[in-house]
Design a protein around this nucleic acid. Structure first.
Lengths: 229, 229
DNA sequence: ATCTTAACGGCACTCCGTGCCACAGGGCAA
DNA sequence: TTGCCCTGTGGCACGGAGTGCCGTTAAGAT
């Protein structure tokens, strides 16, 4: 069942090799640690040559979270397939929630990755770059739908950043709490609380500042009232 | 003026060596490209040994933006030195604006770095990680000041993300426009437009949703009024 | 059975980053 | 001055990442 069996590719042989590499990488990373695991180790554990590893992944880091590209595609699909009349807030929330699926299909793997990413600096930076790509995609899609609106680009950037931040906060909380399937609804609910904080529905031109000042005064009054009780 | 002059350190010799390394790195990166410049090249251009380079920088990437740590310290200072009664919105804006100083003290260097970061994937990822650190710091400081408030952590995360996003958007726009000193005030003004989008002053307990609905109604009314003119 | 195709393994190479060590040169004390 | 300590330095060697190249080998087509 080693290399000789697999020489030359079989129809689904590539997918199998890939899975074995991912599994070997995850196992070795958690057992020995990321830095103490070489690419040779991973390849050997998967029963392939070192050179082959680099035909499946761009580098050592990619073996841990190989679904990044697919995640970006999924989000792009959500935006592309959306009905043009769907409110932007609804669309944005839906798009962000699709990312949960990618992270929660296999809670055990998610926990493993979470622990690893939290420990190893190199993986932490990679995660940051990955999140950055998601944020960029959201920003682009939102900006395209806010062209011409007042502060369209700024609101797109802010909304995208807020969405991604809220998503990650909810996800990290869920992961740190044990990544139970039963807690997933609460996790998504927590994420949805970001909705009122998004500068999306406030589309009226006149001036945001005036409305905000009014809001501040109201808040101040409410605070005084609640503070005196 | 080469190595023999500098053997053994002089009082400000270390700072001088560091400057020479940074200058050499920036020059070579822009002339030959990042990937075609080796650490040996940089060290040789600065008149030091390869080994010495790694005593001044953690790696090749650090030679381009060596001020990251200092930037984090500056922001931490702003938060630490702030008057406890300063409104959170004011504090957050002040903290974010201090980052501008770091990027705008030398517009020419900033432009150079901007072009490089936009081109080279490795530097792009590094930049993302760097931004991530800023965002984390903001999140932590804001969360500490929002403990106990409704959705405190979430609002801290969202506000931090929004601030950083708005800052970067304004900065990138300024850089892409030519990084003129004269345009700096406009750049900061653009950034400040993020203020009304921050879920910061809505501190009253009752419920965010109710206030938001009110805000929406007000906005709608304003929109109707301005749309009919 | 033969040909074509494509994935594989191995080799060699460059470069990054680090541990180790010998050395140079300034400061200090006798 | 002489000898010693201390610190920054350069050179060397090593391990590991990632890449180009090429011979090999098995699967599928004819």
């Amino acid at each position: 069942m080693t290399s000789s069996t697999r020489r030359g590719r079989s129809p689904e042989g590539r997918a199998e090799v890939r899975r074995e590499l991912v599994a070997a990488a995850a196992r070795l990373f958690t057992e020995r640690g990321y830095d103490d695991t070489t690419v040779d180790d991973i390849a050997a554990a998967a029963g392939v040559g070192r050179r082959t590893f680099f035909r499946y992944f761009r580098g050592k880091e990619d073996a841990l979270s190989p679904d990044h590209e697919r995640g970006l595609s999924r989000i792009a699909e959500v935006f592309a397939d959306a009905h043009p009349d769907e409110p932007l807030l609804s669309l944005a929330l839906r798009a962000a929630e699709t990312v949960f699926d990618l992270y929660t299909v296999d809670p055990e793997v998610a926990r493993q990755r979470f622990a690893l990413v939290g420990t190893v600096p190199a993986l932490r930076d990679r995660e940051a770059a990955s999140v950055h790509h998601y944020r960029r995609l959201f920003t682009r899609e939102l900006a395209a739908r806010l062209t011409g609106r007042p502060d369209g680009e700024l609101r797109a950037a802010v909304t995208a950043a807020a969405l991604v931040a809220a998503h990650n906060q909810a996800l990290h909380r869920w992961l740190a709490d044990g990544a139970r399937d039963a807690d997933l609804p609460a996790c998504v609910d927590h994420f949805r609380r970001v909705a009122p904080m998004l500068p999306l529905e406030v589309d009226a031109e006149p001036d945001l500042a005036e409305v905000t000042r009014r809001l501040e005064r109201a808040a101040l009054a409410l605070e005084r009232r609640s503070g005196s009780r």
